[in-house]
């Protein structure tokens, strides 16, 4: 159970960073934490005690104790998506810095009301 709780903790740490940190880059780091925690959780879902990697290395090999390969494949996809979002966030952060000359999210408040 401990790894699951560690995941939850990691998610919470990430969310804490997103909500309380003022620096945009730290917010993005918080996001990465959340993402990886969830990915980790997802990978753990497929875990099987005494399992072996789901790779067929020779013909006629027994497949009964493979760990579930699907979560791993899905996590890989999720990582790709995470990569895209992180890259886009960083690009936005750069442009914001160019315009506002600050990384402080509480000072970026032109849109209100």
């Amino acid at each position: 159970m401990i790894p699951y709780f560690a995941c939850i903790l990691l998610v919470l740490i990430g969310l804490y960073a997103v909500v309380t940190k003022r620096n945009i880059v730290r917010i993005i780091i918080g996001f990465s934490l959340v993402e990886y925690a969830i990915n980790l959780f997802f990978a753990l879902v497929g875990f099987k005690r005494e399992g072996i990697p789901p790779i067929i290395t020779e013909l006629g090999q027994s497949r009964s104790n493979f760990v579930d390969p699907l979560p791993q494949a899905l996590v890989l996809t999720a990582i790709v998506i995470g990569l895209a979002t992180t890259a886009l966030m960083l690009a936005l952060a750069m442009r914001i810095y160019e315009k506002y000359r600050t990384f402080d999210i509480t000072e970026i408040r032109r849109l209100r009301g």
């Binding site: 997103v18 909500v19 917010i27 509480t106 970026i108 408040r109 849109l111 209100r112 009301g113």
Partner: peptide
């Protein structure tokens, strides 16, 4: 209502939570 919509991202995130 629009006073609450004050452009502060942490506040928005807090609403979500």
């Amino acid at each position: 209502l629009s006073y609450i919509q004050n452009g502060s991202l942490p506040l928005y995130a807090a609403w979500v939570f």
